[in-house]
Nucleic acid binder design. Structure first.
Length: 255
DNA sequence: ATAGTCACCTGAGCGC
DNA sequence: TGCGCTCAGGTGACTA
């Protein structure tokens, strides 16, 4: 697989070895939010950050402003990496790929078998961090970004600031279920488009129509009409319903 | 080990 | 029309 780096200044400098030019793509995969383009000797690890995208392009087409990297598959097929904010990254890792520092310490996949309420309860023992920051920690579970963390906490009736170690087993059963449900629904609806996101079909997602709390601070709760409250936790916007996510409720509730 | 903060970056939105 | 400011977010690095 050939490559051409136009601007190496992504989150980390992009440095790819010439040796991979000889190698065919064997398969593609994913771990957390990292895409894995597998070659015989290792893998390209690609993260799209906040604003990245990959598009098939004609190699002769003039690159756009933020088309930083081309991955060349055939003489007339290029996969073009575009990322206005450059929060994304591209690394090469020789086998075994999971030994890469970015991958080796990641928690389980939220839609996988080992992720459930018992797992979360076990991991939360003794932790004083807020439950929202806790589930956004990739060492605990991967894939739960800010939008989906807010939504999952609403669905399980837990306040974002509830100390992780105080949430009960029942609370974590609800939360694990809510995380799987939110992610599953979002995937089924093509993702969440707040501004200009388009999914791999080139279409915007429409999960944003299903949002209960994210981006709705000050607006009425869709269940009880109480004005939603916006706060900041861990430098990120958190929104919750003071009624549906009552302070001191560590067991959650079903919505 | 844990918790909290900072940094990276651009484009959109807003007030003037 | 333009200028400057604020905000958004994934996640590793850093500090205490």
């Amino acid at each position: 697989m050939g490559w051409h780096v136009r601007n190496p200044n992504l989150r980390w400098p992009v440095t790819l070895p010439d040796s991979i030019r000889e190698q065919p793509v064997v398969s593609v995969g994913r771990r957390a939010k990292y895409l894995l383009i597998n070659l015989p000797a290792g893998a390209l690890i690609v993260h799209l950050g906040m604003s990245g995208s990959l598009r098939i392009a004609d190699p002769n087409a003039a690159p756009g402003k933020h088309d930083h990297v081309d991955l060349l598959f055939t003489p007339d097929t290029v996969l073009r990496y575009n990322d206005p904010r450059r929060f994304g990254s591209i690394h090469w890792q020789r086998n075994p790929v999971m030994e890469h520092p970015l991958l080796r310490a990641l928690g389980p996949e939220p839609l996988g078998l080992e992720f459930d309420g018992a797992y979360l309860k076990r991991q939360a023992r003794g932790r004083r961090v807020g439950v929202k920051n806790f589930i956004m920690d990739a060492h605990v579970v991967v894939g739960v970004g800010n939008i989906y963390a807010n939504e999952a906490l609403f669905l399980s009736g837990l306040r974002p600031t509830a100390r992780a170690g105080r949430v009960t087993r029942a609370g974590y059963e609800r939360l694990a279920t809510a995380i799987r449900r939110v992610l599953g629904n979002a995937i089924a609806m093509g993702g969440t488009t707040l501004r200009d996101f388009v999914n791999s079909d080139g279409n915007p997602g429409y999960f944003q129509q299903s949002l209960y709390v994210y981006g709705r601070a000050g607006e009425p709760c869709r269940l009880c009409a109480t004005p939603l409250k916006g706060i900041r936790t861990g430098q990120r916007a958190s929104v919750f319903c003071p009624t549906c996510q009552a302070a001191g409720n560590f067991g959650g509730r079903d919505v």
